[in-house]
């Protein structure tokens, strides 16, 4: 394995995480990552070392994701926990339910807001890099984040609190 491949390989877990959150389907997420990696390998001579390798890979993944999303019917709107960290036991059941509510609320957001929130909040991308990955101006990114996160907040607080919520000590 040459060194670029090694560097790409170490990003796979992060690409998988973002893809999983985007698609909420483990299989579909790995399809997406696979397409992206194949594309990245074909185009790796274009890797200009402007920006980070990670950003470049995410940009590629997002591009592939958009293409796939356009080509497919919308994914089922009924959210499920299937795609969420499949195979790993949730650490605490009640707080996990709370987390699922966030995921469900996220699912009801416009895709453009959801994609941006996941990139920044989950993947920790700097704003400028996230804007580049999503191919939007940074101001647009900020307003998507702001609108999306407020909508999330309202959406979550508008729903009845689950009785399983962790008790405040």
């Amino acid at each position: 394995m040459d060194d670029l491949k090694w560097l790409i390989a170490r990003e796979i877990p992060h690409l998988r995480r973002y893809a999983r959150a985007l698609t909420r389907d483990a299989e579909e997420a790995d399809d997406l990552v696979q397409d992206s990696l194949e594309r990245a390998l074909r185009k790796r001579h274009l890797w200009q070392r402007r920006g980070t390798l990670r950003g470049w890979l995410f940009r590629m993944l997002y591009h592939v994701h958009l293409n796939r999303r356009r080509g497919e019917s919308r994914r089922p709107t009924e959210p499920s926990a299937d795609g969420v960290a499949a195979g790993s036991a949730p650490p605490a059941q009640e707080s996990y339910l709370e987390c699922l509510r966030v995921a469900d609320a996220l699912d009801r957001l416009p895709a453009s807001q959801r994609d941006a929130i996941l990139l920044v909040s989950l993947e920790g991308m700097p704003y400028d890099e996230a804007a580049w990955i999503l191919d939007i101006p940074i101001g647009t990114l900020r307003s998507r984040l702001s609108r999306g996160r407020d909508a999330l907040r309202r959406s979550i607080s508008a729903r009845p609190k689950p009785t399983l919520l962790r008790r405040v000590k």
Partner: peptide, 22 residues
Amino acid sequence: ALHRLYDPVLEEPVPERLSSLL
């Protein structure tokens, strides 16, 4: 919440079909 939901993905073994690409 997002981290709690999706961070476990980072710990999963990378599927062979992905690692073999590299």
